[in-house]
Design a protein around this nucleic acid. Structure first.
Length: 472
DNA sequence: TCTGGGGTCCTAGGACCC
DNA sequence: TCTGGGGTCCTAGGACCC
């Protein structure tokens, strides 16, 4: 989506259309989240300190973000994407990868032509505009990296196709920063070695890249510089951490105040953890000092928890071990090592089940049948059992369908025709509670469609009547 | 009026274990 | 008797992304 937050605000506030709009933190230490294209003309861009934006563009409208509204608009757009394919990987509220191949709309040959892909992309852009009143840009290519680069080139309000075979020639003259994963630090390391363009990365060779940037990063960059990117589109991965942090308008020095803020942040973090139905085992505190130096301290508990008191106490201990007397500008509390259960659940289970059946003593995974070589065997076995789109039933969660599988996991969306949109859960592919099931009749299919009308954006703001609000 | 908030992934060293 | 070779887990920091 183009200048998403600002565009939503412009759609909701007719007086701001065609005017510079800047969404972000409005306090003394705020930064720009999104600047409308009208504001970008003045040099304002994302992540810029708000004070600098105000100097550059004093007449813009400065708005505090309304994430609830953006989330609702985002869900409508993501719904349109899911009409193209079950394999949709959101990157943020305003951006996602769609695996069109998995959508099965390529025709009899199963292969996409540039023209067919372009037609699908243009129709999508029309639909997004009709339903939300907003502009989106589309990049189409044979891999995630190239599709992303194409979409950047397409902005604003455009569409770019990168046809197979043209990738390397297209990439070669581009600056290294074009590649995803190349930020300021990597760009400087490369520049010191005389590497400025993507083509020069490819020429440098893998050994040199690994020497400069390390095994993982160097290897990945060398591959991408040659136009190669085999990463699959992965739908709805589980979160790995949850955190809450605040920057204060003025630095904090008072220990009691710092501990009070830490307790508040711990509660906020845990509330979101619980809302997601998760628990976590490692508590992290983050402290940014007056001079912007940042440190973290973490503590791993004996088992996962979603108890606010437990997280508060751990966070208080961790902050207590740090010298904060010179002043802190930011405090944060996070939880990682997430699980779908809590220590309390485990105690409950221990009371009703034989102790030997818990945790590491679960029955071992059944070995994949030996078809072909050992490596090919596992892949074949997974693909055969959990094809995307096939119906499935879980002993506790009920009916659903396979949204994707890989790396020993299967992602299932628990919904059925006539039900509201369902939740996603991920299981081990050999989870004994999962079984294939017969397709359900699609008699209630309409109910799972986003119920929206093209004119919803004209309804009043204040978030009350947002796009995505079901129509009668 | 210098620099948000929410994340992901990688590296590296030490503890610990077999 | 100067000290192997894996592996995992934990902690801390850093780069990067939107």
């Amino acid at each position: 989506m183009d200048a998403f937050y600002a565009a939503v605000e412009q759609a909701a506030k007719p007086s701001l259309r065609g005017k510079p709009v800047i969404v972000g933190g409005l306090g003394p230490r705020g930064v720009v989240a999104t600047a409308s294209y009208e504001a970008r003309v003045f040099g304002v861009h994302s992540a810029m300190p708000m004070a600098q934006a105000r100097r550059l563009c004093p007449n813009a409208a400065y708005l505090t973000p309304r994430f609830g509204l953006y989330r609702r608009v985002s869900e409508v757009v993501m719904g349109l994407l899911r009409e193209l394919s079950p394999l949709v990987e959101p990157l943020s509220l305003d951006e996602a990868f769609v695996d069109l191949q998995a959508g099965g709309a390529a025709g009899e040959t199963g292969r996409w032509s540039a023209d067919a892909a372009r037609a699908v992309g243009e129709r999508l852009r029309r639909d997004i505009r009709a339903v939300t009143g907003l502009c989106g840009s589309v990049g189409l290519a044979g891999s995630k990296m190239l599709a992303k680069i194409a979409s950047e080139q397409a902005k604003p309000d455009g569409l770019v196709v990168i046809s197979p075979g043209t990738e390397r020639a297209l990439l070669a003259p581009m600056p290294v920063r074009t590649l995803p994963g190349v930020g300021p630090a990597t760009a400087q390391t490369l520049r010191r070695s005389g590497i400025a363009t993507v083509g020069e990365i490819a020429e440098a060779g893998e050994a040199e890249l690994v020497r400069l940037l390390g095994r993982a990063h160097g290897g990945a960059l060398y591959t991408m510089a040659r136009g190669i990117d085999e990463r699959p589109v992965v739908a709805e991965r589980d979160a790995k951490s949850v955190s809450a942090e605040d920057t204060f308008d003025t630095d904090l020095t008072d220990r009691a105040r710092i501990q009070a803020e830490i307790a508040r942040l711990a509660d906020r973090c845990v509330a979101r953890l619980r809302a997601a139905g998760r628990s976590g085992r490692t508590v992290v505190v983050k402290i940014r000092s007056y001079d912007f130096s940042t440190l973290t301290r973490s503590e791993t508990l004996r088992g996962p928890t979603d108890d606010p008191a437990v997280v508060r106490e751990a966070a208080a201990r961790l902050v207590g071990g740090v010298d904060t007397t010179a002043g802190v500008r930011l405090l944060g509390v996070g939880v990682s090592g997430l699980a779908d259960f809590t220590q309390e659940d485990l105690f409950a289970q221990a009371g009703t089940r034989a102790a030997g059946l818990l945790g590491a003593d679960r029955p071992p995974s059944p070995a994949p049948p030996a078809v072909g070589g050992p490596a090919a065997g596992r892949e074949t076995w997974e693909v055969r059992h959990w094809l995307p789109g096939l119906d499935i039933r879980h002993a506790r969660y009920g009916p659903g369908w396979v949204q994707g599988s890989g790396l020993g996991r299967v992602t299932v969306r628990f919904e059925q025709p006539g039900s509201p949109p369902g939740r996603v859960r991920t299981f081990a592919v050999d989870d004994p509670e999962l079984e294939p099931s017969e397709p359900l009749p699609p008699w209630g299919g309409q109910a799972s469609e986003p119920a929206i009308r093209p004119n919803v954006m004209s309804s009043s703001e204040a978030g009350a009547a947002a796009p995505g609000t079901p129509s009668p």
